[in-house]
Deep mutational scan, measured.
Amino acid sequence: SIVTKIISIVQERQNMDDGAPVKTRDIADAAGLSIYQVRLYLEQLHDVGVLEKVNAGKGVPGLWRLL
Rank of each mutant, 00 (worst) to 15 (best):
G62P: 15
S1H: 12
S34E: 06
P21W: 15
L33I: 09
S1G: 11
A31E: 01
L33A: 02
K58T: 11
L45S: 00
A28D: 04
V38A: 14
Q14M: 14
L63G: 15
S34G: 07
V3D: 02
P61T: 12
T24G: 03
D18L: 10
A30Q: 08
Q44W: 15
T4M: 13
P21S: 07
L42V: 02
V22L: 05
G62R: 08
I35D: 05
V50P: 03
H46Q: 11
R25T: 10
L33R: 02
V3L: 15
G59D: 09
V48C: 15
L66R: 02
G49K: 04
A20L: 08
I35S: 05
G57K: 09
H46K: 12
S1T: 10
G49C: 04
A56K: 09
L45Y: 00
L42T: 11
G32S: 06
V48N: 12
R39N: 11
G59P: 04
Q11G: 08
Q11I: 11
K5I: 08
M16A: 12
V22K: 02
G49P: 05
K53N: 14
K23S: 15
R25M: 08
A56I: 10
H46Y: 10
E52R: 04
Y41A: 05
T4V: 11
V10T: 02
Y36W: 13
L51I: 09
V22S: 05
D18M: 11
W64S: 00
S34L: 04
V10P: 00
D29E: 13
S1N: 10
N15H: 10
Q14Y: 07
K23Q: 08
A30E: 08
G32C: 06
R65F: 09
D26W: 06
K53M: 06
G59I: 04
A56T: 11
D47F: 12
I7L: 10
L66E: 02
L66V: 11
L40P: 10
T4Y: 14
V54Q: 02
A28Y: 02
P61R: 11
H46E: 10
R65S: 07
L67S: 13
S34N: 08
Q11K: 13
T4I: 13
R65P: 00
G59T: 06
A20T: 07
P21A: 14
I2M: 12
A20W: 05
R25G: 09
L42I: 02
S34P: 12
I7C: 05
T4F: 13
S8Q: 13
K53S: 04
A31Y: 02
H46G: 05
E43G: 05
L67Q: 08
P61F: 13
G19T: 05
D47I: 12
G57F: 05
E43F: 07
G32Q: 06
N15T: 11
D17H: 15
S34Q: 06
G19I: 03
D26A: 10
S8H: 11
Q11S: 10
D47W: 11
S34R: 06
G57Q: 07
E52F: 04
D29P: 01
S8T: 10
G59R: 06
S8D: 07
M16P: 03
G57Y: 06
R25E: 14
G62K: 10
V38C: 15
N15A: 14
V10G: 00
E43C: 09
I35H: 05
K53R: 10
R13Y: 11
Q14P: 02
V38Y: 00
R13D: 00
S34A: 06
V38L: 05
I2S: 03
G32T: 02
G49E: 02
R13W: 06
D29L: 12
Y41E: 01
L45F: 01
E52P: 01
R39W: 10
G59V: 04
E43N: 10
I9A: 06
N55A: 10
V60Y: 12
Q14C: 06
Y36F: 11
V48G: 08
D18R: 12
S34W: 04
A31F: 03
W64L: 00
I9R: 01
R13Q: 07
I9P: 00
A30S: 07
Q14H: 09
G57P: 07
L66N: 01
K23W: 05
S8M: 12
N55S: 12
T24M: 03
Y36K: 14
I35M: 12
K58W: 03
A28W: 03
K23H: 10
E43A: 06
A56Q: 11
V60C: 13
D29N: 11
V54N: 01
L66S: 03
L40K: 13
A31V: 14
S34K: 06
V22P: 02
G59M: 05
P61K: 11
R65M: 07
I27G: 01
V60R: 13
L40E: 08
V3R: 11
Q37A: 10
I35R: 04
K53A: 04
V60D: 14
N55W: 12
R39I: 13
A31W: 03
L67W: 09
G57T: 07
E12V: 08
I35E: 08
Q11M: 12
L51M: 11
K5R: 13
I2T: 06
V22A: 04
I27L: 04
A30I: 06
G49N: 04
D47E: 14
Q44F: 15
V38R: 00
R13T: 03
V60P: 10
L45K: 02
W64Q: 00
E52W: 03
L51Q: 01
I35G: 03
S1C: 15
K53D: 09
Q44G: 07
I6N: 07
S1Y: 10
G57S: 07
G49Q: 04
Q11R: 14
V22W: 04
D26M: 05
V54S: 03
R65W: 12
G59W: 05
E52A: 06
P61G: 15
E52D: 05
I7G: 00
L67A: 15
R25W: 07
I35K: 04
A31R: 01
I35W: 08
W64D: 01
A56L: 10
I6Q: 00
V22N: 01
K5T: 08
M16C: 09
Q37H: 09
T4P: 05
V10N: 00
I6Y: 01
E43I: 07
L45W: 01
L63E: 13
D47C: 14
L66Y: 12
D26G: 01
S8R: 14
E43R: 07
A28I: 02
R25V: 10
L63V: 05
G59N: 09
L40A: 10
D17N: 15
S8V: 06
V60W: 14
L63A: 13
K5D: 04
T4R: 14
Y41S: 01
M16H: 10
R39M: 13
V50K: 05
E52S: 06
V60F: 11
R13I: 12
T24V: 04
I2A: 04
L40Q: 10
I9K: 02
Q37M: 14
A56F: 08
K5Q: 09
Y41F: 09
K58A: 12
V50T: 05
G19Q: 06
G19L: 04
Y36R: 14
G49A: 02
R13M: 11
L45T: 01
L42A: 01
G62W: 12
G19E: 04
E52Y: 05
V22D: 00
V54T: 05
W64A: 00
Q11P: 00
